[in-house]
Simulated scan of single mutants.
Amino acid sequence: MSSPVLSPETFETVVVAGVGLIGGSVALGLRERMLSRHIIGLDASAGALEEALALGVIDEARTAPGEWLRSADLVVLAVPVKVLTSLARSLAPYLAPGALITDVGSVKTGIAAEFEALGVRAFVPGHPMTGSERGGVANASAGLLENAVWVLTPTERTPLTALSRMRRLVEQLGAAPVVMPPDAHDKLVATVSHLPYLASLALTHMVARDERLSLLAAGGFRDLTRVASGDPRMSRDMVVENKVALREALHSFSRQLAHLADTLDDPEELLLAASEGKRTRDNLPVVKRSLLPPKYDLVVAVPDKPNQIGAITRILGEASINIKDIEVLAIREHGGAIRLGLEEAGDVDRAAALLRQEGYATRNRG
């Protein structure tokens, strides 16, 4: 059984502004680990909010900022980077002084400067390095954040207490926090994220202009161009917002391609380049998500009383529900939460019903 290193912080009210793939995943992560008691979704799309409510991702829906925001003690900005700064300006007048504010945008310099200009001090810019070609809240999952690198980019004015709270939250969501300045993040992401997107576009355009190429484009080509399947508008906005750093990365990439072109006349030099490429690629870290599929997991709120885990396992054992794994997710003053990994998908609903009859609060893993 594992337990968290740091005691988690419970947020009474969380606002997730933008209930798409990442915003929805953050909301589900907060739910799963019982780090929030009430989650409000803020989105201009009534359809997205209705879907999020129906899926149990949020508890309440709002389509516009207002005085209601003052109740929030955590605000997560999860809208496309193009509208991040305008959203920041619309929210700033309503934010409570003690609220922790963060975002999940893939470009950090602009939003960090905007919040500083607005005088919002407890803002910690962030970027979870995760995602999927399938967007929307319907594809959100708490597991999307697990073991992902989550970059935090504080500025000189970011309070250390806010950064500490954000680091703790990231860890409790199952991700790995990495801290660096906003401009350093943007330069690095230009190479490892935005440049591959443009390279994918270039390759797919070459195939689109010659039907014979499309007949031969097999698995390797599909893997290499996977990121071209992302939302075109969001991807466009992402690279445009980081165009200064991206142009530098493109120049470096062009030099690398030119060097490789020169090695075509020198097989030994090309072999050295290929060997270096293989070593680098093979040594890249593999992000492993949950060992158990989300649908087999059940999260249970545990009151601060003796032998609670024993009581829970007894209840399920008497019903012949096999528990494959138990993980302590949260430890708080008045109780905590555990995750039960169950053997069968159908066991989740049965276990939840049995435990609720005994007075335990439960949530299916999102």
Rank of each mutant, 00 (worst) to 15 (best):
V5H: 07
P8R: 12
P8V: 10
F11E: 03
E12R: 13
V14L: 05
V15M: 03
A17D: 06
I22V: 10
G24F: 02
V26K: 10
A27C: 10
L28I: 01
R33T: 09
S36L: 07
H38D: 01
H38L: 08
I40G: 04
I40D: 05
G41H: 13
L42R: 04
A44S: 14
A48Q: 05
A52P: 04
A54C: 04
G56M: 04
E60T: 06
W68M: 08
W68D: 08
L74P: 05
V76S: 09
A78G: 05
L84R: 01
S86I: 04
L87G: 00
A88R: 02
A92C: 06
L95M: 11
G98N: 03
A99R: 00
L100C: 06
I101H: 02
I101A: 11
I101W: 15
D103F: 09
G105C: 03
V107E: 00
A117Y: 01
G119K: 00
V120F: 09
A122F: 06
F123D: 08
V124Q: 00
G126Q: 02
M129F: 10
T130M: 07
T130E: 00
S141E: 14
W150L: 02
T153Q: 05
P154F: 12
R157A: 11
S164L: 00
R165M: 07
P177T: 04
M180N: 04
P182S: 04
T191N: 12
P196L: 01
Y197F: 01
Y197I: 11
A199T: 11
L201Y: 00
L201I: 11
V207Y: 08
E211D: 15
S214P: 02
A217F: 05
A218W: 08
F221I: 11
D223G: 03
L224A: 08
T225Q: 03
R226I: 01
G230P: 06
M238A: 14
K243S: 15
K243F: 13
R247D: 09
R247I: 14
S252I: 07
R255Q: 10
Q256E: 13
Q256Y: 11
A258Y: 08
D262H: 13
L264Y: 15
P267S: 14
E269D: 12
L270S: 07
L272R: 15
S275C: 12
G277V: 00
V287T: 15
V287M: 14
L292K: 05
Y296M: 14
P306W: 02
P306I: 02
N307L: 15
N307R: 15
A319Y: 03
I331S: 06
A337K: 06
R339L: 15
G341E: 06
E343W: 06
D347S: 09
V348R: 10
A351W: 07
A353Y: 13
L354F: 09
Q357R: 12
G359L: 04
Y360H: 09
R365C: 15
